[in-house]
Amino acid sequence: MRSNTVGWLMLAPTIAILGIFGIIPFIYVLYVSFHQWNPFGASPDMIYNGANNFRRLVFDAEFLTSIAFTMKFAFFAVISEVALGYLLAQLFMKEFPGRGFFRTIHTLPLIVAPIVVGSVWRLMTTPSIGIIPYLLKSWFGYDLNIGRDATAAFALTVIMDIWHWTPLVTLTLLAALLALPKEPFEQAQIDGANRRQIFWHVTLPMIRPAILATVFIRLMDALRTVDEVWMLTSGGPGAATRYVGLHIWKIVFPKTDYGYGAAISVIVLYLTLVMCWLLYVALVARRERKRTF
């Protein structure tokens, strides 16, 4: 009983912070989502309008398009980051001259603020001025114009995200790989397993929790990306990179449609949770169920 009280006391600050900065704002957003509220409307007051905001978003082509583009963005970005991050982690496991230097260098993008990353990439990709269009034109005769080419703009947002966040994946997976015991690998080698078999049957199962955690973090981040993309393309050309975070920003801030923006935020949170749950079921729960049988 006494230890319980001490435990709760120790947890109290965390619970209080979570309550103040997480739960209370969420409840407020939920409350606002059931209202029509635009402070620059003819009537700036909050008016209860039931589930109308949620009904509206089901038929909102702009919202649905932004969700589709976001999913596509998250898919390509997260898959590439995990694959590239794993390869780099494996590389950094090996001994080679300058390993420490490269390990340090490759984590540098992580300490750059997303808004700065967006600005730098914008400078590098501005048609006629940036170095990337210049090199692509000189080497391949390809005219890169992110103001006009939707596919190129989309691809660049993915590449920028990969550049920025792959080091996080590398560090997580490197920590997981370094923590693995040697014995299972030695045993597998003695049993005659080749490198592919060792990867699929030994390494991957052992680092699965780390991969899963990384994928969850990166997926959630990718679904709410705003600053970098805003700086690089402002969501354009057209709506090609107007990902859902940016879409919400535009609805809530410039358009000041607080009620509708809150409704979209709630739905996006729900979608994120569902996606993470589906991923968890696909990667962990199903495997554990198999094991119990």
Binding site: N38, F40, A150, G236, P237, G238, I251, P254, K255, D257
Partner: peptide, 22 residues
């Protein structure tokens, strides 16, 4: 007008489509 950003944001997506030739 007291609704600048609101009308701009409501019409801008179509405006961008015009620019892109969509």
């Amino acid at each position: 007008f007291p609704f600048h950003a609101q009308v701009r944001e409501a019409t801008a997506p179509i405006f961008y489509k015009i620019l892109l030739g969509e």
